[in-house]
């Protein structure tokens, strides 16, 4: 296979970026998209050109490090996959592929395709946890949780923190990311004691970091590699409203 790549190059956060065009030839269709970029980087390095910076780590779709905006889609054309799970057989010979970094005010570009996503850590620090110290907790089976509820909490908990929801949202909103954690802990009894502060605190942090609001386009659900449902956002909004209108003592 052969492909033509238009790749965003940017030296650092303060410099202006531009697209550059590269051709990659002799690609086996069974290799992954990132391995194709490895081939290109290896060639650039051999020719004394600086390789393209992009984030990646586990390369099996679970760590959330990778994230490229490919032909206008976060994580590319396939549903339910991360960038590292894309394989070249999903593209055609002689395709022209445009690769950009995540673009959002809260995700400044560090270099080329690598962006700074520490804003997501900050949202989690705003309350994405249950306040229990190590030790002194009850036996694991002392609290029973209906399977349906546990499974639903799990479905929210599978978020990998890649930021695709932000990148694909026209408002650069982190609502799906935040809602996934709020939801998981609102569903589980362990999350109950702090329920009323959690949604409010996390949303306040999110708003303060420059993420936009949700306007229900559902693009986040479409591009989420873990296919997390927008219903989580509805649940988060309910949690938020309750935190305002319902007494903390009720």
């Amino acid at each position: 296979m052969k492909v033509t790549l238009n790749i965003w190059r940017q030296k650092n956060v303060s410099s202006k970026g531009r697209f550059e065009t590269y051709e990659v030839d002799n690609i086996d269709e069974h290799i992954s998209f990132l391995e194709m970029l490895d081939m290109l980087n290896e060639r650039l390095l051999k020719n004394d050109q600086e390789p393209i910076s992009f984030s990646h780590d586990c390369r099996e779709g679970i760590c959330g490090a990778c994230g490229l905006f490919i032909n206008g889609r976060a994580h590319g054309p396939m549903r339910g996959v991360t960038t590292c799970q894309l394989h070249m057989r999903m593209f055609n010979d002689n395709d022209v592929i445009t690769i950009e970094p995540w673009r959002a005010k809260a995700f400044p570009v560090i270099k080329d395709l690598t962006v700074d996503r520490t804003a997501l850590d900050k949202i989690m620090q705003g309350g994405g946890y249950v306040s229990v110290n190590t030790g002194g907790v009850p036996d694991a089976n002392s609290v029973i949780i209906p399977k349906l509820i546990a499974d639903e909490a799990f479905n929210s908990a599978v978020c990998i923190g890649c930021g695709a929801c932000v990148a694909t949202c026209k408002n650069a909103s982190a609502s799906l990311f935040t809602a996934a954690k709020v939801s998981q802990l609102a569903l589980l009894p362990q999350g109950y004691p702090e329920r009323k502060y959690r949604a409010r605190n996390m949303i306040d942090v999110m708003d303060g970091l420059g993420f936009g609001n949700c306007s229900n386009t559902y693009a986040c659900e479409v591009d989420c590699p873990k296919e997390i449902s927008v219903l989580n956002i509805a649940r988060m909004n309910r949690e938020y409203l309750k935190s305002i209108f319902v007494s903390l003592y009720s």
Binding site: V132, A140, N141, I144, I145, P146, K147, A150
Partner: peptide, 18 residues
């Protein structure tokens, strides 16, 4: 015990136990 207290959603049986 610790992980359950943190809200780790382990897989459960229909009766609600782990």
């Amino acid at each position: 015990d610790q992980c359950v207290a943190q809200g780790v959603p382990f897989t459960r049986e229909y009766g609600g136990l782990l």
